[in-house]
Computed example of a mutant assay.
Amino acid sequence: MSIMNLIGDNIVISNEQNLTVDAALEITCSKLVEQGKVETTYLEAIKQKHKEIGAYYVLAPKIAMPHARPEDGVNEAALQITVFKNGVDLESEDNGDVFFSVTLAALDSDSHIQTIVALSELFQNDEDIEAIIAADNEASIANILNKY
C-alpha cells in the first residue's frame, strides 16, 4: 500500500515565515483536523508533549514527524504532508530548521508499522526529500510520494 492512500489530498505548502512552534504545529495538523481525521485534542497533545520534552518529533535535519497517542483524538488513520518553504524553527538543538513534515495519525500502535517502514525509506532518500522541499505544487509532491 502506498503512503499516498493515507495522505490523499493532505498536502500543504506553507510560505509563512517566522512561525512559532504552536503556529507551525497547527499547520502540520490543519487538514487532518479540518477533515475530522483527528480531533483538536490531538494537536493539543502534540503541543503539550513539545512543552514537556521538546521537539521529540524532529527526526533528522529538515525532517519532522509530529504525532501523539491514538487515544489523544485519532478518528481515522491518516498522514498530512507539510512543506515549509522558509523552514521553521521547532527548537531542535541537533537538527536545525524543519522544511518537511509528515504528521502521523495512527489508530493503534501496530497497524501503522508498514507506514513507518515506507516513511523511513523516504526519509533516507535525500534526493526525494530535497525534491519535495523544492516542489512548487502539491501534484509534484504527490508524484514523488507515490513511490513509497
Rank of each mutant, 00 (worst) to 15 (best):
Val102Arg: 00
Asn95Glu: 12
Gly87Ile: 10
Phe84Ser: 03
Val98Pro: 00
Phe99Arg: 01
Gly96Leu: 11
Gly87Leu: 05
Phe84Asn: 03
Asp110Ser: 11
Asn95Thr: 05
Glu91His: 10
Ser111Lys: 07
Phe84Pro: 00
Lys85Cys: 11
Asn86Met: 07
Asp94Arg: 00
Thr103Ile: 04
Phe100Cys: 12
Glu93Lys: 15
Val98His: 02
Asp110Met: 07
Val83His: 07
Asp89Asn: 15
Asp94Tyr: 01
Asp97Asn: 14
Leu104Gln: 06
Ser92Gln: 12
Val88Glu: 06
Phe84Gln: 06
Ser111Gln: 12
Glu93His: 07
Leu104Ile: 15
Thr103Ala: 14
Thr82Cys: 10
Leu107Phe: 01
Leu107Gly: 15
Val102Tyr: 03
Ala106Lys: 02
Glu91Met: 07
Ala105Ile: 13
Leu90Thr: 04
Leu107Ala: 13
Glu93Asn: 12
Ser92Cys: 13
Asn95Pro: 04
Ser109Asp: 11
Ser92Thr: 08
Thr103Asp: 06
Asp110Glu: 13
Glu91Arg: 06
Thr82Glu: 05
Glu93Gly: 14
Val98Ile: 07
Phe100Ala: 11
Phe100Gln: 12
Glu91Phe: 01
Ser109Thr: 11
Leu104Gly: 03
Asn86Ser: 08
Leu90Cys: 08
Leu90Arg: 01
Ser111Val: 06
Glu91Lys: 15
Asp108Gln: 12
Val88Arg: 00
Asp89Leu: 05
Phe99His: 14
Val102Phe: 02
Ser92Val: 11
Asp110Phe: 05
Val102Gly: 03
Ser109Tyr: 12
Ala106Glu: 14
Thr82Phe: 04
Ser101Lys: 00
Gly96Met: 10
Asp108Phe: 09
Asp110Thr: 08
Asp108Asn: 15
Ser101Thr: 09
Val83Phe: 11
Val83Pro: 03
Ser109His: 09
Gly87Lys: 01
Leu90Lys: 01
Asp89Thr: 04
Ala106His: 01
Thr103Met: 13
Asp110Ile: 06
Gly96Trp: 01
Val102Ile: 12
Ser111Glu: 15
Asp110His: 07
Ala105Lys: 03
Leu104Val: 14
Leu104Lys: 00
Asp108Met: 07
Ser109Ile: 14
Asp89Tyr: 06
Val88Trp: 01
Ala105Asn: 13
Leu104Tyr: 08
Asn95His: 15
Gly87Arg: 00
Ser109Arg: 10
Leu104Arg: 00
Leu107Glu: 15
Ser111Cys: 10
Ser101Ile: 05
Gly96Ala: 09
Gly96Asn: 08
Thr103Glu: 09
Val98Glu: 06
Leu104Cys: 03
Ser111Phe: 04
Asn95Ile: 02
Asp108Ala: 09
Asp89Ser: 04
Ser109Leu: 07
Asp97Trp: 00
Ala105Val: 14
Gly87Asn: 10
Asp94His: 04
Lys85Glu: 11
Glu91Ser: 07
Val83Leu: 11
Val88Leu: 03
Thr103Asn: 10
Thr82Ala: 04
Phe99Ser: 05
Thr103Gly: 02
Ala106Cys: 13
Phe84Met: 11
Phe84Val: 10
Asn95Phe: 15
